[in-house]
Simulated assay, not measured.
Amino acid sequence: MEDNLRQKANERRKRVNDLPAFDIRVVIFTALHDPEHESLERHLVNIGAQKLKTDTFLRGDYWCFKNATGELIGVFIKCLHGAGNGLAGIEAMRVFPVFPADLVAFCGIGGSLDPQTSPLGSVVVSKKVIWQGFDKIYIDPNQPLHEKMREKDHFIYVLNGPLSDALDDFIHSKKHGRPNYTPLDSNPDLRVRWAEGVTNWKKTERSKVKEDVEFFDPDRITRDWDVPVKRGDVLSWEYVLNSRARRVRILAATKTFAAVEMESGAITRALDYTLNVGGASKYLSVRGISDLCSQKTDDIFREIGSDAAAGFLVSFLFSTLTTQLIGGR
């Protein structure tokens, strides 16, 4: 038994050693194969990235591409095929010892905690990730939210200064199109489907979230083919938030949260465990807004949000991520 485990460990290390000598290593997690993983792969292909091989043990794929300065970036993409911090933490603990990363990101969809500043289809890029305790707040719906929150010790993971500053500069520059916006994929078939989907949403779904979309113009997405990007704090917890009243209470009590999701808390925790304390400062959550944490919205915003998040992250990796930014190897 012990010999068998040792043999498997050696085989895993050998597979990684067979990879090229990357200047920068990146791990990217997605939860859903369709549309998150597919969107990410599509945007990697768009910049000329090559898929090297599949790791059958980690059940993920190795990709590589040269950034704008000619440095070789190696990317391991791990699709969780499911949602939740439990699953994300387990898989992260398997990945990081095998493929230590200079940057770790989650790329996918999330819910908006502030529909006016983070509307459907837009992208939220984390300043910090906050995890723990929120799933227990609502056992007593009469308990004031802010008082319960003060009783909780939350795990707070802040993106390190150089990476955070580089993201701000990238968002507010023209490197990826108009400042503060990120473009959607130019594939004409995708754009036709998205335009039809937005039109159908207006006819059948908009009324379900009318209180939150008063100032939302979905036609702007399909007219300009780009979406707004903002930095904000990301709340990671344990279940789907589908109550507008609860969402409003969270935002009123915290002010800084922009998006909610279910994976980043455990991934950042795993980074600290497997690399070193402070390792989570190299973690980035990129979330395309697919719902408003209330009534279910049409799946077309899952596609648009996934594409926008993937487009933003891949553009940032290609144009801005360098060995100098991550402190060298």
Rank of each mutant, 00 (worst) to 15 (best):
V198E: 10
V213L: 02
A195H: 12
N200G: 02
E196T: 11
V198Q: 12
E211C: 02
V213R: 01
V209E: 06
P183G: 04
E196R: 14
D219A: 00
D212M: 05
P218H: 07
E196F: 04
L190K: 10
I221K: 09
F216A: 01
P188H: 01
K202T: 06
E205Q: 15
K203I: 12
K202V: 05
V198F: 11
S186N: 11
R191Y: 05
N200T: 10
R191S: 09
T199F: 08
F216L: 01
I221Y: 08
V213W: 00
K202E: 13
F216N: 04
V192G: 02
R193T: 06
K202P: 00
P188D: 06
F216H: 05
N187S: 11
L184A: 08
Y181W: 12
F216M: 03
E211G: 06
K202R: 13
K202Q: 15
P188A: 05
I221W: 08
P188F: 05
G197E: 12
T204I: 14
L184H: 03
P188L: 06
K210H: 07
T204D: 14
G197L: 11
V198D: 10
D185S: 14
T204S: 15
R193H: 11
E214F: 00
S186W: 00
D185A: 13
V213F: 03
D212W: 03
E196A: 15
R206C: 07
P183L: 04
R220S: 12
V213E: 00
D189S: 15
K202H: 07
D185I: 08
V198Y: 12
V192E: 10
L190W: 06
N200E: 13
L190G: 03
K210W: 04
P218N: 06
E214P: 03
F216G: 02
L184K: 03
D217W: 03
L190Q: 09
E205C: 15
V213G: 00
I221N: 07
L190F: 13
I221F: 04
N187I: 07
W201D: 09
D217K: 13
E214L: 09
V192N: 08
L190S: 09
V198H: 12
G197A: 12
S207I: 14
K202W: 02
W194P: 00
W201H: 14
L184Y: 01
D219T: 05
K208P: 00
F216P: 01
F215Y: 09
L184V: 02
N200K: 15
L184M: 06
W201C: 09
R220W: 07
W194R: 10
G197F: 11
R206D: 01
S207W: 12
P218Y: 03
R191A: 01
V192F: 08
V209L: 03
V213Q: 04
T182A: 05
L190R: 09
T182E: 09
D185G: 06
N187T: 11
K208Q: 06
D219R: 04
D219L: 07
E205A: 15
E211N: 14
T204H: 15
V192K: 14
V198C: 08
T204C: 13
R206G: 04
D185T: 08
V192T: 11
K210Q: 12
S186Y: 06
K203P: 03
D212P: 01
